[in-house]
């Protein structure tokens, strides 16, 4: 156990280091992306550009620039190139919207995915199952920004049932917050509901033929109890592990498209806008945060499963 944790932590640090270097390099290889020139603006003299370059250290070798930027990130004083605001402050300001979206949608897609999966499996081959299959397939085949735009058009513009995007902080007005989040939650969840219900359906159908399920039935336990305590409980393991990975990805910037369509002003949207401005520091921080969430949650999931299920052994990898 200790060995597993130590190896996971080392591996995580390595991955995060490599990701930060990679992100830094991606923006350094742009031939016409001189940040000093962009910061000085169009009508700038070569002197101002040179001065900016000196103060921001753009003349230093790349590795030195990288080290300085990383140091600033960890001391919390990293400043964005184009807006010249503290990146960490900006992220702190945007994080509530992203967390609201991720946590709410995570709950919605887990509950609905399990519900639809169970319904599908219980009615396998019948109308309900077929209909849910069609819905799941359409959900998996529709880009989330298209779905969001269509939903906004019909539900916020044609019928003014929901607000036209935007985010209201939970602390400011909980009801208004809920009102603004419902549509983004549902739209982001559709894809995942499609995947989860399909996976759970086939897991359930597989588990129903296990010997221990037959034993449980033979003992005379009611069908409902067999289903919930024996079949569903075991079929949920892969779903929960899938959920933790997807949830991490959504927190780590995976919800960019949903945030943009609904103009939630979250971390993902901040990343997308920063990338378009070729503003390296915010992108660097957000990408590292996202990768950290993914690596961290997958390690935690592995540990939890090892504790819950004695058949799973923890190895280095």
């Amino acid at each position: 156990m200790t060995r597993f944790v130590v190896r996971r932590v080392i591996s995580m640090v390595l991955v995060l280091f490599a990701i930060s270097v990679l992100t830094f390099l991606i923006f350094q290889v742009i031939p016409n992306g001189d940040p000093a020139q962009r910061m000085a603006g169009r009508l700038s003299t070569p002197e101002t550009v040179a001065a900016i370059r000196r103060t921001w250290g753009f003349d230093d070798p790349i590795w030195q620039q990288y080290l300085i930027t990383m140091k600033k990130i960890f001391t919390g004083e990293v400043i964005s190139y184009t807006q010249q605001v503290n990146v960490l402050d900006q992220i702190k300001q945007d994080l509530p919207a992203t967390l609201s979206l991720a946590i709410g949608a995570g709950i919605v897609w887990f509950v609905m995915g399990v519900l639809f999966g169970v319904l599908s499996a219980l009615r396998a081959g019948h109308f309900t199952d077929r209909a849910l299959t069609v819905v799941a397939l359409v959900g998996v085949s529709t880009p989330v920004f298209l779905l969001g735009a269509v939903a906004l058009y019909f539900l916020a513009f044609k019928v003014q049932l929901f607000p036209n995007g935007g985010y209201v902080p939970l602390t400011q007005d909980p009801l208004d917050w809920l009102y603004h989040m419902i549509l983004p939650w549902l739209v982001l969840s559709v894809l995942f509901i499609g995947i989860y219900s399909r996976v759970l359906r086939s897991n359930l159908l597989d588990t129903m033929n296990e010997d221990y399920v037959r034993t449980a039935r033979a003992k005379g336990i009611s069908e409902r109890r067999v289903l919930v305590r024996h079949v569903l409980r075991n079929s949920l393991i892969p779903i929960v592990s899938l959920w933790s990975l997807d949830f991490a990805a959504v927190i780590g910037g995976g919800a960019i498209l949903t945030e943009s369509v609904f103009n939630l002003q979250g971390v993902g949207q901040y990343a997308a806008e920063s990338i378009q401005r070729l503003d390296v520091p915010p992108v660097l921080v957000i990408v590292m945060l996202g990768a950290f969430a993914v690596v961290m949650l997958s390690a935690i999931t592995d540990v939890i499963f090892a504790l819950l299920d004695p058949r799973i052994r923890l190895t280095g990898r």
Partner: peptide, 17 residues
């Protein structure tokens, strides 16, 4: 490394540059 890098972020970072 590729897997932990947020897919869409990696895509737009590479795509934009």
């Amino acid at each position: 490394l590729i897997w932990a890098y947020p897919v869409v972020l990696l895509g737009i970072a590479l795509g934009t540059s």
